[in-house]
Design a protein around this nucleic acid. Structure first.
Length: 556
RNA sequence: GCCCCCGUAGCUCAGCUGGAUAGAGCGGAAGCCUUCUAAGCUUUUGGUCGCAGGUUCGAGUCCUGCCGGGGGCGCCA
């Protein structure tokens, strides 16, 4: 019995009571009720606070309602015992057979276990990283890479139709500064003011020269334009390669330039004018975002005739909506939080309800420490900590996992020594090791000729307390995934996996729960039932790690 | 000055969107390998949930104010 099934059982019991006239609920019977795993031993396998929540509406007190409901629930299929406790909690014990059946359900679902349809029908665009193509990806981008990718995976698992998108800021003065910096490096001149410094610029200068010999001998203006294009392609390719090897895949690489090539920006401006949210002042064109809660109005066309970044943003948003996305998620760093207000106001200006179509996530910054010293990441000073360096030193799995296990809005301090440790100190290896352990156990079972039972699987043989704990942990997985998707919080998956790995390891160390027969003992039905449990556990570890983009090794 | 985020064990952080006696890992202390992977398990140490009010059956969680830390407030990109 899963929490969802128990919830449905309780709803049925409430309906029965209402039908019998034993209970009156003015607002009707709730569609589902909260079922929790009690923290405290002795509070049953599951607990519900439904009596506390409904008592007032039903015109009775929680304990009386609890007793009424408990009586009905005790007769339900799969329910063992029900106790009314404390102010009116119902503590439910599930029958071993009903509990054990979860293992077979997990095995039957396989790679689909944990998937739900809670977000079915939603078309969601997840935009993340969106770095300028003027340098390598660094630590900050790395966090968004992990979170954006994991959010994409989790949303898909919850049934949404997801597109992961990278917006390339390939238009604007920074591209020219980028080109000028490469030229300066090639000619051995100092980095121009507001230019880009660092070893990677020199590497790029060399690569640009190799890609197009003679490029630095062109006349100055022509040279900058040519270097800009070659440097851009090389740098973008570098970012793309880095992300692919970091297991972060994008469905769409969207060029800001392409937005302008298609004439969509003037169309956007015209649409805004038609909607009456645009005005001219001091020679510039403004969007009246203050109509929708922004602090101040925003410029779309500067008085020198140049379009602002915000104009592109607006056109880009409309492009996404035009491509059929009903929900646009943006992952931005805390240093961009000032954009939230204007993005929301902009969506409202084009006639959308930002509460429905926009979801701007602000992630806090990451610090990384080595030997008690913070590794600084200043592009200007040329001391950037790149994604590539981090992935090489820490390992893709450990780096991804270490960043995925914290919520985006929590400021983060990572210690290189701690997350590179290949031991149980490191949660990623703890979970991976537990997975590898299940794999080895299944191999051993196969070697002994044990076959996964089908119809002859007897779930009621999984009666040990540890069996129950593990089964209940496995039964949690789908709702962990669903809440991770709904809240856009993939760290919940990681925390869940750590808890479940701990439960599994304790189960494994329990002598009474051995899966394999000892010595020459024959294989019993209990051994086979535990094999189902192990395969189910392996399935959950593999699926969960997959949602975080972390591999699930079979041996360690 | 205004806006956003954070404040929980010595350290790094969870806390299931208001539930029962606040948790995990690391660090410190002590144990457990002749049989499924010891990258594991067991025991132990450790708290004014920043402070003060409020909301209610019930607050780490919600509201208000204050204190402390980080970030942001361009016709930059």
């Amino acid at each position: 019995m899963t929490p969802a099934q128990l919830s449905a059982t309780i709803v049925d019991a409430l309906s029965t009571l209402v039908d019998q006239g034993a209970l009156t609920l003015p607002d009707g019977v709730p569609a589902e009720v909260t079922v929790e795993r009690p923290r405290q031993k002795g509070h049953g396998d599951y607990a519900t606070n439904v009596a506390l929540q409904l008592a007032k509406k039903a015109g009775t007190n929680p304990r009386a309602l609890g007793e009424l409901l408990a009586e009905r629930l005790r007769e339900a299929d799969g329910v063992g015992d029900v106790e009314v406790a404390g102010p009116g909690f119902l503590n439910v014990t599930v029958e071993a057979g009903a509990q054990g059946r979860v293992a077979a359900e997990v095995v039957a679902a396989g790679t689909a276990y944990g998937h739900t349809d809670t977000l079915a029908g939603q078309r969601i665009n997840v935009e993340f990283i969106s770095a300028n193509p003027t340098g390598p990806l660094h630590l900050g981008h790395t966090r968004w890479a992990v979170l954006g990718d994991a959010i994409g995976r989790v949303l898909s698992a919850a049934g949404a139709d997801v597109t992961r998108e990278f917006y390339i800021n390939d238009r604007g003065v920074q591209m020219t500064r980028f080109a000028e910096s490469i030229v300066a490096a090639a000619l051995g001149e100092p980095t121009p003011e507001d230019g880009y410094a660092g070893g990677y610029v020199e590497d790029l200068a060399r690569a640009v020269g190799e890609a197009q010999p003679g490029i630095f001998d062109l006349p100055a203006e022509e040279r900058v334009a040519a270097v800009r294009e070659v440097g851009y392609r090389l740098q973008l390719k570098d970012q793309q390669d880095q992300l692919e090897s970091f297991h972060t895949h994008f469905d769409v690489w969207f060029s800001e330039r392409s937005l302008h090539d298609g004439g969509r920006v003037p169309q956007t401006l015209q649409r805004l004018k038609d909607l009456g949210h645009v005005y001219e002042q001091d020679g510039a064109l403004w969007m009246r975002t203050t109509d929708f809660g922004d602090d101040k109005d925003r410029v779309l066309i500067k008085s020198d005739g140049e379009l602002t970044y915000f104009a592109s943003d607006t056109a880009y948003y409309l492009d996404k909506r035009g491509r059929g996305f009903d929900h646009c998620i943006y992952l931005l760093g805390a240093d961009h939080h000032g954009y939230v207000g204007r993005l929301r106001a902009m969506a409202a200006c084009v006639g959308d309800d930002p509460d429905r179509t926009l979801d701007v996530m602000i992630g806090q910054l990451v610090k990384i420490m080595r030997d008690g010293q913070e590794l600084k990441l200043s592009k200007r000073a040329g001391t950037i900590v790149t994604l590539q360096e981090l992935a090489e030193e820490i390992g893709v799995d450990a780096l991804r996992y270490s960043l995925a296990r914290y919520p985006a809005d929590s400021p983060l301090v990572l210690d290189v020594a701690e997350i590179t440790k290949a031991s149980n100190d490191n949660p990623v290896y703890y979970v991976q090791y537990a997975h590898a352990r299940t794999c080895r156990m299944v191999e051993n079972a196969t070697d002994l000729g044990m076959a996964l039972p089908g119809d002859d699987f007897d779930p009621s043989l999984l009666v040990h307390e540890r069996d129950g704990q593990l089964l209940r942990a496995l039964a949690e997985f789908p709702r962990v995934v669903a809440s991770a998707a709904e809240l856009r919080e993939p760290h919940r998956i990681a925390r869940y996996l750590e808890d479940t790995a701990s439960v599994f390891n304790k189960w494994y160390d329990t002598k009474e729960c051995r899966m394999l027969p000892q010595g020459d003992e024959p294989v019993t039905a209990t051994n086979l039932a535990r094999l189902v449990l192990v395969v189910a556990t392996r399935t959950v570890f593999a699926n969960g790690l997959g949602l975080l983009g972390v591999t699930a090794p079979e041996r360690m």
